[in-house]
Amino acid sequence: MTPDKRADYWRANLRYLTVLLIVWFIVSYGFGVLLVEPLNAIHLGGYPLGFWFAQQGSIYVFVALIFVYAALMNRLDKEFDVGEE
């Protein structure tokens, strides 16, 4: 792989990481801490939604983001022809 292709690959990887970490931050800190009062007006399974995001929702989103990242990286590996065979 040429140095330019490596730089493009790394740039795309960092872009994915940045977007996914921003999503996780918004869900965990934004929904679980900053927006907890407005979200508590909504109930999910008998619990206030703000409480649910603070206790479980951010963990579920984090696990989902791991799978999203793996799928994105598999696609990126194929695009740059560095995928596992």
Results as ranks from 00 to 15, higher is better:
Tyr60Gln: 06
Val68Met: 07
Asp4Met: 09
Gly57Phe: 06
Phe31Ser: 01
Tyr29Thr: 01
Ser28Cys: 00
Leu72Asn: 08
His43Gln: 14
Ile42Trp: 15
Tyr47Ser: 13
Glu85Asn: 14
Trp24Cys: 00
Ile66Arg: 09
Asn74Trp: 14
Val61Met: 03
Asp4Cys: 02
Ser58Lys: 02
Gln55Thr: 13
Phe67Trp: 12
Tyr60Val: 11
Tyr9Phe: 12
Phe53Ile: 04
Leu34Ser: 03
Asp77Met: 13
Glu85Met: 13
Glu85Phe: 15
Phe67Ser: 09
Val63Ile: 12
Ala7Phe: 03
Arg11His: 09
Leu76Tyr: 06
Gly46Ile: 09
Val68Thr: 11
Phe62Gly: 13
Ala64Thr: 08
Gly30Lys: 03
Gly32Phe: 01
Leu76Lys: 15
Gly57Val: 05
Arg11Tyr: 09
Leu14Lys: 08
Asp8Glu: 14
Gly45Phe: 07
Pro48Met: 03
Ala54Cys: 05
Gly57Cys: 05
Arg11Ile: 10
Asp8Tyr: 06
Ile22Tyr: 00
Arg6His: 06
Gly46Ala: 07
Phe53Met: 12
Ala41Thr: 13
Arg6Cys: 05
Thr18Phe: 06
Ile66Gly: 11
Ala54Lys: 13
Gly57Leu: 05
Val23Tyr: 00
Pro3Arg: 06
Gly30Cys: 01
Val68Gly: 04
Trp10His: 11
Val63Pro: 02
Ile42Asp: 12
Ala41Trp: 05
Asp8Thr: 06
Glu79Gly: 13
Asn13Arg: 15
Ile42Gln: 13
Gln56Arg: 15
Met73Phe: 14
Phe80Val: 03
Leu14Phe: 10
Gly50His: 04
Asp77Leu: 10
Gln55Phe: 12
Leu35Cys: 06
